[in-house]
């Protein structure tokens, strides 16, 4: 446990000393503002909720999260510090989970800094704050899913650019899996059960209800499973690299 804490602390610190944190947070805030107000028609809708804000999160994360996750392992491999880290007397789990948690906490901080939006809707009307809280939690869980995928892709390559692109692609697949456009493609020749399975893998399907403020146990379970599965995959990738 203490190893995990030490790693989370170190990783989280490194975001802020490299200024990556400030650049990322700034871009995140600007873009979420643009999406909410211009594309989401926040004012024109005349409703006191944050649905237009949350709706765009999957798309926002699609290119912002890989920018965070790409450095998780690629950078260590490139600089050689991975040799230092993995020869310290720690469990692989602590290293993988510690790095992931630091990145996840960091996106949580970025998400929390959008609080002026919450203040705004509360000023303008009487929103369902429970629904907003559910939206925030759900969005954070989804960010975790993206990050876990990114962690695995970053462990695969020593190039951050490749890690970024591949993470973006895999995340896109997961987002689009539930898209009618994609599902229609398979509709005619794939059994219904596979189609359902495919759709149920979609980030979008699980997030759409969350973005409306409904945080069901099933969706939470889905995102937690995605995180666990991809972190396990990260550990497997590291182990394969150790042996090959």
């Amino acid at each position: 446990m203490s190893h995990l804490v030490a790693i989370v602390k170190r990783e989280l610190n490194s975001y802020f000393v490299t200024h990556l944190a400030y650049v990322f947070i700034l871009i995140f805030l600007i873009l979420s503002g643009v999406f909410t107000f211009y594309l989401g028609n926040f004012f024109e809708r005349g409703q006191a909720d944050l649905a237009p804000f949350f709706t765009f999160h999957p798309w926002l994360y699609l290119f912002l999260v890989p920018a965070i996750s790409m450095r998780l392992w690629s950078e260590e491999r490139k600089s050689g510090s991975i040799e230092l880290l993995l020869t310290l007397p720690i469990r692989k789990f602590d290293a993988v989970a510690g790095k992931f948690l630091a990145a996840w906490i960091f996106t949580g901080i970025a998400l929390l800094l959008t609080f002026p939006l919450w203040l705004t809707v509360n000023y303008l009307g009487e929103p369902d704050n429970g629904a907003i809280l559910a939206g925030y939690l759900g969005s954070w869980l989804m960010a975790g899913g993206f990050l876990a995928i990114g962690s695995c892709m970053s462990a695969l390559s020593r190039s951050q650019v490749i890690a970024f692109i591949v993470t973006g692609l895999v995340c896109l697949l997961f987002v689009l899996a539930g898209f009618p456009m994609v599902l229609n493609l398979f509709e005619d020749w794939v059994p219904m059960i596979v189609l359902d399975a495919l759709a149920s893998l979609s980030f979008l399907a699980h997030f759409s209800s969350i973005s409306k403020g409904v945080l069901s146990l099933q969706d939470v379970f889905y995102f937690v499973s995605v995180i666990v599965a991809w972190l396990a995959a990260t550990m497997i990738v590291l182990e394969i690299k150790r042996a090959s």
Binding site: R10, N13, S14, V17, T18, S79, G80, S81, E83, L84, T87
Partner: peptide
């Protein structure tokens, strides 16, 4: 262990 090239966390 001192790995080859003494890699460290350079931002620290």
């Amino acid at each position: 262990y001192l790995p080859e090239g003494a890699p460290c966390y350079e931002d620290m």
